[in-house]
Structures are given as C-alpha cells and as structure tokens.
Design a protein around this nucleic acid. Structure first.
Lengths: 214, 214, 214, 214
DNA sequence: TATGAATGAGCATTCATTCAT
DNA sequence: CATGAATGAATGCTCATTCAT
C-alpha cells in the first residue's frame, strides 16, 4: 500500500464511503466490519478512522447522502410535469431509476424517513432533508387536489405518510422478491412496479374510470 | 404413532422459542444473545443447543411460527364476512390486532414475505406457508372481482403482491413513526392505519365514489 | 490446552488472580494485557472473562486482597506485644516481611489506602478494610499515649495519617532505590528501613533520649 | 559562541514541553496523547517528533525540569535561614508552595527521587540533579548536627534518604487524600502538612521537648 | 524545518459454539 | 438428556510513530 499522493480529503472520504456503501449493501451494515471497509477502500483501518470518527459517522453520512439524492430525484420529477398524473409517473420513474442505480442508498433513505430525528451524528440534517422530502410530496398532493386531479378532502400529511409507506413497501418487495415475481407472474421487477404504482395511484386519484389497471 | 414420544422435547423447544421470541422483541435479534435466551428460558446454554442446532434455527422457527399465525389470522378474517369490503375490513382489523399482540412476530412475518426464502433451516416450510398466505389473498381478490366488488381485470398475483408490499410498508411505517405521526397529524397509530387502509382499498375497489376518504 | 477437570471456580479465580498479580507487579497494571494474563494463567482470554467480568474486577479483587492481608499482618503485630515500642517494632517487621513476600500487594495496599472509596467494583469493601486498618493504628497511638509511651497530645487521626504517609513513602523508597542505597550507604534495604523506622518513631515517641539513632 | 543559533529550536521545545506538562497534569501522562500535546502546543504532531524523539523524551525532559526546579526551591530555602529549625520551616514552606504551583512537576520530582534513574533519554542529568538535591539536604543535616540543633550521630545519607521518602509520602498522601483528611480531621491539606512536617522534624531534632506537636 | 497523511500493532470485550462428563 | 466449562474468532477503536514532500 504505497503512500498516497496529496489528494483532497474529500476524495478519501468519498472513496471510503463508496466502499462502505458497497459493503453495507452486500452484507448489511452490521456485518460489514471496519476492517472490511478499510480493505475494500484500499486503506488501513486506522486511516479510515482518520476520515471518519466512527462507524456511525460513516453510516450517517451515507444516510444523509441517500436522502439528499432522493430529494434531488423528487425535485426533478416534480419539475418535469404539471399534471398530477404526469408528475406521479415521473416520481415513479425517478424512484425506480434511483433504486436501480443505488439500491443501498435507496433502501437507506426509505428506512430513514421512517426513523426519528437525532439518532444521527449530523446535527439533525438528515431529519431536515426528510422533512423537505415530505413537504415536496405534500405540495404535490395539495396542488393535485386543487386542480381536481386528486381526490379532494385528502389530508395532506396522513396521505403522504401512508402513501410513502406503501410506496416504499412496494419497491422493497419488488427488489427482494424480484426473482419470485419473475417466475410467478412473468413480470420483470420494473413491470411489476409499474403495475403497483398504478394501483397506488388509484388510491388517491380523483377518478380513473372503472377500467383495467395497466 | 410414536408421535407422543417426542412431545416432551417439543415442549422444551417451545419454552426456549418463547423466551427467544420475547427477547428478540425486546432487544432485537442481533442483540439477544444465546446466553440471554438460555437464562430467560431457564435452561443452560448448552441445553439450548440440544434443542436448536443454531441461533439461526431458532430464528427460523420463530419466523415460521409467525407466518403460521399470520395465516390463521387471515383465514379467520376471510371466513368472517362475505363481501369484499367486509372481508377487507376484517383483514385490516386482524392485521392490526396481530401486530398489537405480537409486534415481533408480525414484523418478522412481513419481512419474510418481503424477503427471499433464504437458506432456512426448515425444509422450505416457511416458503410453503408464504404461498398459502398468497393464495388466500389471491382468492379474496378473485372472488371480489367475480362479484364485481373489486375492479375487474386485476391480475391476482401481481395485485396481491403489490398490495401486500404496500400494506406491510404502511403498517411498519405506522409502527416506527408512531410518535411522529401522533405529533404531526394528531392521529393515533390506529387511526392512521385505518386511514391508510382505506386509501389502499380504493386502489383495488371497483368504485368507491369520488368522495372523501374516511 | 486440554479441557480442565472439574475444579472449584474459586481455584480458577485464584489462579488467574495470581497470574495477574505477578504480571501487574512485573510490568504494571496498565501494561499487563488481558492476553498476557490469560496466557500466564494457562487459560484462553475468553475464559478469563468467565471468571472476571472486567480487568477492573481483577484489579479490585487484588486490591482488596492486599488490603486484607495488610490488615492481618497489622493485627498480628499489635497482638504480639504490649508496649508501644514492642508493637512498633513488630509493625515494622510485619510490614517489611509483607513487602518482601508480596511487593505488588504491598504497594497496592498502600496506594489504595490513599484513595477515595467507591472507585472499586466491590461494594465499598476495600474502603471498609482501609478504615479498619486506620482504626487499628489509631488504637495503637491512643493506647501508647495513655501509657505515656507516646507523646501526649498527639491527635490520633492526623498523626496516624501522617505516620502512614511517611511510613509508606519510606518503604517505597527503600524498594525502588534499594540498589542505590546499597551502593551509596552500604546498607541493605532492610537495614535502611530499620534506620528509617527508628527515625519515624522518634517523631511520636514520648522520649527516646537525645542519643544516637540505631 | 554559535550558542545563539540553537535558541529558536529551544523555544519550540519549551513551548511543546509546556503544553505537555499542562496536559500531563490535567489528565495524566498515559492519557495525554501526542495528538493532544501537538494540538495544545499549536504544532503538528510530526513537528513534535522533530523536537522530541519520543513521548518518553518529553517525559524525561519534564522530569529533569521538575528536579531542577525542586533544586532551586531547596537552595532558596537553605539560603533563607541559618538555624536548622528555620531552614526546616523554609524547606517545608517551599515544598508546599512548589506543590501548590506545579503539582505535576512536584509529584514527578518526588517520584523520580524515589524511583530508579531508569534508561532516561538524557545523559544521566536527571540523576545528577538528584544527587545535587541529596547533597543539599545532606549539608543541611550535617550543619545542623554540628550546631547541636539536630541529633548527633545521624548518618547523613541514610537519614536524608529516609527523610526524603517520608516527606514525599506525607505530601502525596496529603494531596490524594485531601478530601478525606478534610472531612475526617477538619484540617485543610496545608494544616495537615504542617502537622506532619512537625512530626517528622521531631525524628531528627536534637530535642524539641516533650510537649504537644503543633 | 514543518507537516499532512498513513499505519502497524494492540486492546478490552463479546458471543456463538463445542465437548467431556 | 443436561450442563459446566472453555474458547476461537471477531469487533470497534486508539495511538505512538514514520515518511515523503
């Protein structure tokens, strides 16, 4: 392990975080040891501790990052269309894409949105981003209702939370049972997800007609 | 008919499993040590290994148990009413009740249904029970569609899976964010769940009218 | 390392404690690792943790033991003579003997008597024994004063503490500088100690005449 | 006369040593890390290693310094009075003052005097200063004896060593048990020390009368 | 000279698991 | 069948020290 050239500290943090993310994904956060992470990143364990105070700090950073990324994706989705239907489709597309690209980050973000604040090393930043995501979706629901595209009388906060729970449950099932879904229904994970997204949309849509899903 | 002979051993297994379940619930699977379990069950640690090859085998048994219990609850729900709406309400009620009584078992069952069958110690029994649960719900959807109560054209298997994913995501969010939900929406976990259940139902119902949720 | 036969747990504790005491003496408490101790005792490190919850518990036990032993030695000394002079000589003899036999224990006891209570794992037992030792010496001073053998008007508690501090300082210097003392004064550690004991005695004696020390 | 050249380096050493001394005092030698020291001194850790080969070298320097300071204090004391009694009082006063001002240095000096010279980094300089201190006190005893103020027949070297051991034990007990002493005897550490000094003085004084201490 | 960067060698502690009895 | 006893293999974390620049 030759001594590295002068590289911005941020790059080291990034490299370590990337290695950690991969390992967390592969074997879970608890099972990925600091030794593993160091080895995978090509540093000594002690060096990892130079860049991260804790295993927790690593986890926190990854969590925050995943939340931020999720936030970006959602912003992009909401900016890309005006109708609720159009926006919803973009949301689902972004979510699916995000999940395909960073499955660990995605899962982490979803799980984190469900947790309480303060558990993390950062100063509640993770919580803040979570709130921003919530308000993004709340806005989507509110505007949709105003336009008459979404059911009136939906209570924004509970709806959003319920919707979010359902959505995340759907996506995680699609991931973990992809193989089973394929063999049992003949659908790819993506197709299955679209089917599910449609189902969920009907739960909030003003009127989609009585016709077929899909 | 030598079945009786093994009975005592079964009782020991049961006692140990019960102690384990309580501890898993209390502190999580990883944090509950075999020492803890043995002590709580009133056996020596070595004895636990007489009845269970592994910690994993214990977890597997508990998982299987939780699936069976979930199956029972769902059977009861589907037997208790004829209309889809009535059945759905019973399903939700049973689920909520089950969750309230055995949160750990409940979570385990949901996670198992969402996760891969895994190299479980049992001979695929867990998987089998999972399939039975699926076919239970598939029947519910099929019959509902035949009666015109649920949307026609729903594909039973994908619908059921999507529904299941959404449902479990909803319930788990309701649990993990109970406090947040309470403070942010003023709803109790139970009220929130009912709200969410209703939302989900609209996704599959034939026609619930355009009116307010709840 | 063959599995040991059934031996009373106390014996294991004793063996481990003995090994620890030797190592603590040899390289100091901090530098003696649990690995060292285990190896020296002929057990695996994990086994050491079966018998002692902590490194601290080991240290505490050793400390308590050393205090008890010191207490015994002092009792023996005070019982062995009636006059203050005679008792003092016995005290010094016992102290010297104790130090020769268990230098680590001796040092620990002296250092501990100076510390505050409650720092230890035991329930203040160490502190209690310390107090008993103090009251032993206080009695010695009081009786000596009553008989007119020791200076009247000595305040028992401060005297005892001062005396104890001085005595321990003397003995520890005698140990750590034994070689230097030998080469610089030609005295053995024992001779030097006797010389010092005499000096200290004059500090409390009623009248030793103006003559020579020794 | 190239002496001036090295001056800057000496200043760096001094700054680092000062920071180290403060930290050693605050948290103990073992607990003060090189990182702490570097940070406190305002240098990088690597720079500390430019000026000090070792943590040990730092400790050694500090030890030597503390010995030198002690030497100075003792010189001042012996110069300040002519009678043994007066000198003794000054010695005690200086010692107490030194201890109050630099508890860590003081303790270090005492411990060093009590401990082996060790494989110190300096070329036996610490030992030399120790010898100088010894000869200072030896002179005090010798002159006192010649004047008839101190007991005749005292062997200077053993007496001095014994005295020194006793004195240091007394002072260290006064420090570590200050709280206990306060609560048990009502004396402040200073009062207790004076009481103890008096006691010790009687051990070497020619005749102090049979009266009360203090 | 000064330092940013990196690390080897530990350390106390934990726990699932094994075996002789 | 039950278990007391023992342990191998980790695990997160620390710190004095080195070296290329």
């Amino acid at each position: 392990m030759a001594r590295r050239k002068k590289q911005p500290a941020q790059e080291h943090r990034g490299a370590i975080a990337a290695a950690a993310a991969a390992l967390f994904e592969e074997k879970g956060v608890a099972a990925a040891t600091m030794d593993d992470i160091a080895r995978a990143a090509g540093y000594s364990k002690a060096t990892v501790y130079v860049y991260f105070k804790n295993k927790d700090e690593l986890v926190s950073l990854l969590t925050l990052e995943s939340m931020r990324r999720l936030h970006e994706h959602l912003c992009r989705a909401l900016d890309g269309a005006r109708t609720s239907r159009g926006r919803y489709e973009l949301i689902c597309r972004e979510l699916t894409a995000y999940h395909a690209k960073y499955p660990f980050y995605f899962k982490t973000a979803l799980e984190t949105i469900r947790l309480e604040p303060g558990a993390d090393t950062d100063g509640g930043e993770t919580f803040t981003v979570g709130e921003e995501i919530n308000s993004l979706l709340a806005g989507f629901l509110r505007e949709g209702a105003q336009r008459g595209e979404l059911r009136r009388g939906l209570e924004p906060l509970p709806t959003l939370l319920a919707f979010w729970g359902a959505l995340s449950g759907l996506i995680m099932l699609a991931e973990s049972k992809a193989e089973y879904i394929q063999s049992a229904t003949g659908m790819s994970a993506g197709q299955f997800l679209n089917y599910g997204f449609e189902l969920l949309y009907r739960g909030v849509a003003a009127d989609v007609g009585g016709g077929n899903v899909q």
